[in-house]
Structures are given as structure tokens and as C-alpha cells.
């Protein structure tokens, strides 16, 4: 089974039925899979803080949400994470493409990569880092943990996890 399907199967198995996404090359397969599933309402957002607002509303409406985004979004969403998701104690799995790690071809991506884990740690956000494909075996448990504790939880997926950047 493809890793994209495995990830979305885990979302569905955990009753996640509302997913918002901001485009990403590495997560493109997952996003395509999310769009294709009947049981998931996929609402693309223009910016990640907007997406978190959508997720907060969906959760209060009875649907388990998730957001799919790049790690640069941590810089965009700190206020929303602190004053909406954490303050009102809401669960939010964040499947994050961890740009700027090993095999990264774009230098500027490293500039946010070096802050990513520090910012997540500063926010006391439980953070998991998928480096090899077998790391995704824990996704099911991570999702259960997220909805058990009603917190935002970060799942960083780096280039090695996705098999590099192809020909770049």
C-alpha cells in the first residue's frame, strides 16, 4: 500500500472527516487521497490560520478535523494555536511537511526548519518526527492521543520520509 493511502486510512479509521489543506509538493499525494475519499470533507484553505479556524468550527460541529500544511505555517499560526486551539482546548492533528531538512534543495526552507522544533517546543505542542516510512506505524496511536488530550499535535514528515525531492 502507498504511504499516502496508509496515512489517509489512519485518518479515516480515527473518524477524521474534515480536512483542510494548503498545497505542498511532498504532501500532494496525501491531499489527492483526502480529496478522493467520500468520508472526508476536504476544504482547501488560503492560509493556515484560516484553516485552523475552519477546523475549530468543524470540531465544535461534531466532526473530527485535521490540517495538512508545511512547517513554514508554524510561523503563520502561532497566535491561532495559542489563542484559539490551545486556549479553548481543541484537538488538532497537524500533518506537516518538514521542509529544510536533509536533502533540501532550497536554501531558504532551512531558515524556518531551524526554528520549527523550537517553536513547537515553546508552545508545548507534542511533536513527532517521521524520518523513515516505518515511523508512520505510530500515526494511528498519535491520532488517538490527539483526540484523547484535546491538544494540537504536530507530525513532522521530512524529505527522507517522502523519499527525497526527485531530480532536483
Amino acid at each position: 500500500m502507498s504511504i499516502d493511502r496508509k496515512i489517509v486510512d489512519d485518518l479515516v479509521a480515527n473518524d477524521i472527516s474534515f480536512v483542510t489543506t494548503v498545497p505542498c509538493k511532498q504532501l500532494a499525494g496525501v491531499i489527492e487521497e483526502v480529496e478522493a475519499r467520500d468520508g472526508i470533507l476536504h476544504v482547501p484553505s488560503n492560509k493556515e490560520d484560516e484553516g485552523m479556524g475552519l477546523c475549530a468550527g468543524a470540531w465544535m460541529g461534531g466532526k473530527r478535523p485535521a490540517i495538512i500544511m508545511q512547517n513554514t505555517a508554524i510561523g503563520v499560526t502561532i497566535n491561532t494555536l495559542a489563542t484559539l486551539i490551545q486556549y479553548y482546548r481543541m484537538p488538532l492533528p497537524m500533518l506537516i511537511s518538514y521542509r529544510g531538512e536533509l536533502r533540501e534543495p532550497v536554501a531558504c526552507q532551512v531558515e524556518m526548519a531551524v526554528h520549527t522544533k523550537a517553536l513547537l517546543a515553546q508552545l508545548n505542542i507534542p511533536t513527532y518526527h517521521f524520518h523513515t516510512q516505518s515511523d508512520a506505524d505510530e500515526l494511528d496511536a498519535i491520532l488517538k492521543y490527539t483526540f484523547m488530550c484535546n491538544k494540537p499535535v504536530a507530525i513532522l514528515t521530512d524529505a527522507s520520509f517522502w523519499g527525497g525531492y526527485g531530480d532536483q
Partner: peptide
Amino acid sequence: NFYMLGTMGLASSIGLGLALAQ
């Protein structure tokens, strides 16, 4: 009533997510 105590700008997004979910 859901009162927003922070996070300027997201009332419309929260409302849309809520409307789409139920």
C-alpha cells in the same frame, strides 16, 4: 453564542467550518 476571546479575523472561518459540519 461562541465568543472569540482572541485570534482576530477567524470568526468567519470558524462559522464556515461549523456550518459545513452540521
